[in-house]
Design a protein around this nucleic acid. Sequence first.
DNA 1: ATATTTACTGCAACTAAGTTGCGTTAAACG
DNA 2: CGTTTAACGCAACTTAGTTGCAGTAAATAT
Lengths: 126, 126
Amino acid sequence: MGILRKTKSVKILLDEFEEQSTAISAITLIERLHLKMNKTTIYRILDKLEDDGFLHSFLGKNGHKWYAKCSGCSSEEHHDIHPHFQCLDCGKVDCLPTDILIPDIPNRKVHVSQILLQGTCEACFN
Amino acid sequence: MGILRKTKSVKILLDEFEEQSTAISAITLIERLHLKMNKTTIYRILDKLEDDGFLHSFLGKNGHKWYAKCSGCSSEEHHDIHPHFQCLDCGKVDCLPTDILIPDIPNRKVHVSQILLQGTCEACFN
DNA sequence: ATATTTACTGCAACTAAGTTGCGTTAAACG
DNA sequence: CGTTTAACGCAACTTAGTTGCAGTAAATAT
Ligand SMILES: [Mn+2]
Ligand SMILES: [Mn+2]
Ligand SMILES: [Zn+2]
Ligand SMILES: [Zn+2]
């Protein structure tokens, strides 16, 4: 089930995602907000915001959880599937609008594709 | 550094990968071999076999580590990059020979691509 | 404005994958 | 067989994420 009460903690977390468009890891949020709320609360709210279709989650290069804003999803439908890019220098992660074509795999039916590209971002290029 | 001594434990682990062509998770190996060797030993040997270019590793859907045989890699060069497929019914994971084209991403340089497809495998199809 | 209801929160304890340090064992080799 | 040291087992640790429960504060009713 999603968010039912707009508590202080929910507002603080929503603000974090409003302020920047890149993805944020759960670990970063815990570190950044540890004076304002408990890590349990953070995990629980992120989970609910995902149910609501406001955030989507994915795993970064170490298998740790990252969250980013959805665009046009709802609690009924998460159609927001796309590749992600993690910079190996600064660690920043972004959603990519790029569409990557998955060819048909013989004898298998693909339902989900999880694509994480790693390399160098624009800011770290120079 | 890779394997220097062909110990009993190393032989047992090599056998596991000789017997089947699908990928095996570290967790599965620990469970399967816990009477024969310690989990620390398993992690250390897998790590060395990867250094040697005999195995390659990747993360499955929960961010847990999986290993599979390489074909034609060496300790100098791991050129064995390809997508993986995890069956959502039986959990089995395979290496895919399929090549997936990663388009150029504006303002970013892609070094590595990590692709995990999820769906239904042949055996679970019926 | 106050009372009631219950979703949400904080805390402490837990789970589980993977790592580290160290004393002991057993490959490799002369 | 004896020596060397890579590799092993064990216990303790690290860390991301989860769970149970008692207390708190939103939302709603009175
Ligand atoms: Mn995204
Ligand atoms: Mn593979
Ligand atoms: Zn960067
Ligand atoms: Zn299957």
